[in-house]
Design a binder for these strands. Sequence first.
DNA 1: CAGTTTATGTGAGAAAAATTCACATAGGAG
DNA 2: CTCCTATGTGAATTTTTCTCACATAAACTG
Lengths: 315, 315
Amino acid sequence: MSGRLPPLNPLKAFEAAARLGSVSAAARELRVTHGAVSHQLRTLEGSLDAVLFDRSGRRLKLTSAGALLLPAVTQAFGGIAAATAQMKRPATTGKLSITCVPALLSFWIVPRLHSFTEQFPDVTLTLAASNDPTQLHSRDVDVSILYGDGNWPDAWTRLWSHLQLFPVASPTLLNSRPLRSMRDLEDHVLLHGDSDGREWNTWLAAADGADLPRRRQHFMGDARFSTEAALYGQGIALGDTITAAKLIADGELLVPFDLGVPANNAFYVACRHEMRAAPIVRVFIDWLFASLEADTLPEPHSMARTILRGRSGKS
Amino acid sequence: MSGRLPPLNPLKAFEAAARLGSVSAAARELRVTHGAVSHQLRTLEGSLDAVLFDRSGRRLKLTSAGALLLPAVTQAFGGIAAATAQMKRPATTGKLSITCVPALLSFWIVPRLHSFTEQFPDVTLTLAASNDPTQLHSRDVDVSILYGDGNWPDAWTRLWSHLQLFPVASPTLLNSRPLRSMRDLEDHVLLHGDSDGREWNTWLAAADGADLPRRRQHFMGDARFSTEAALYGQGIALGDTITAAKLIADGELLVPFDLGVPANNAFYVACRHEMRAAPIVRVFIDWLFASLEADTLPEPHSMARTILRGRSGKS
DNA sequence: CAGTTTATGTGAGAAAAATTCACATAGGAG
DNA sequence: CTCCTATGTGAATTTTTCTCACATAAACTG
């Protein structure tokens, strides 16, 4: 601070008295006696060696010197008040706009939303199913959860979770059409969650089924739809350790093979740099990581247990 | 003040400590002990219920909350310091940068500069001969005195003086080559102060000499040079009631004709809006108007007296 | 006009905030 | 390891802020 500041507390009394044009009104606002305000004004005038008020009537009128000072003081105190109010604003109040890869939104976040709502009842979420990274930079989006390689420029990004891929199917389908070998897979419809079949290829390659004839297959657009189709018994989809975990735990999907492969991509949390410091954004992100941490995958039934063995074999 | 302010004196310690990254450096700057600063920071943190510094090393590092607060405080105190410094700065000290139409600068302001200097010995003037209105908006220019129609947008402008135009010549020239009629004017060189001869045309039209043959004439670039050429006996220039007044009063220029015409343009004082409130600018402008007011045109010799009669006839 | 209400001013004393002082702990450099 | 220099902290001291009671004066009312 290159210059010397006048006494700041008397400056507070000055601002109130000048704004209200009255010592007693300023005293009421500041919750002190009028004598305190009067003393402070005198102190300030002495410090600045300037007469700030014309006191020829019952009301205070600013002198030209006082009029010179008031706008700067008004703005200064306004800025400080605003900054401290911003600091005090609960991080647990307000609106948050989130985009999230569709499968994660449907099968992970939506089922856990009650946990967030209970902890932060005053936060309103606006959720949009999207894996489009360009939306990261939209002013209408506060946080994005994306599935990809994590390379999104000019944004704050943090890895949320890796995942393993493996075939999943509904109990109903597997009852009517057993699936015990790679050969049996040939008789089923393969449900793709990506657009080029790359993830199924990865799994099949690891399972020595790379040259399995692709009799029937559908490309469902995204993993949410491929998973939903599997739930409806339309075929075999590739589930993963995150989005399919609850469905597997609940017995809605079964895991017929003892093999999971790491996905090339992962889930990341991302937001614009300037949003990272926003308390409400941090609250959500912290909740997301905490939920993942606390998310103890329940003991799945026997088929799902084989996944865990496959994973430990790879590490 | 709609919000409640944090304690302002502790905020002063916060700003210094954050800026310097050190309790003891802040103490030195504020001229208190380090203990005082430490106590103040604790007081502020308690008041705001926020940790403002990371103290894991010997140096202070701002937390995110502290980083949120600092810019607002820096700006606030900066504004207050600037306003109080402005209040304390005498209006009669400092530097002033002025542009002025060349003839007025040479023949009016420069001869009167001692008057300004005597009254305001601590004001340093930087003078530039220019009638370019675009310089009005330059940050390097505080005040401009312009000759024109007064229509300069986005600036504060005030009419300073109208003027009358009439031919002037040196006594030496008139001795060797008398000038008693419009016919005699034909044998002289006409000296133009403008670029298109418009002002001579105006005078000649009023003197019924519009069709006078233009045997010899020079365009001098501006009225200062045309007036100087007249002083050197190079020809007949158009003088005016302001810039030529002193030269006429001193007998350096004579007024051979009993006719003056109002100029289409006038002299104006102008400056940027934000400069208008600057005390030092007001000091100069006030001096300018006061000098014009106090400028009693001395009783000119007989030829110059005819101008006055011509003027009263037109009003 | 007189009386009443309400405004700001002021000195002395009380209360709160700011500061010093002395001791303490700890980080960092050589 | 020692030494230097950093911040922390409680108690005492100093300074600032505030209250209280009295004062003067402007403005209002009947």
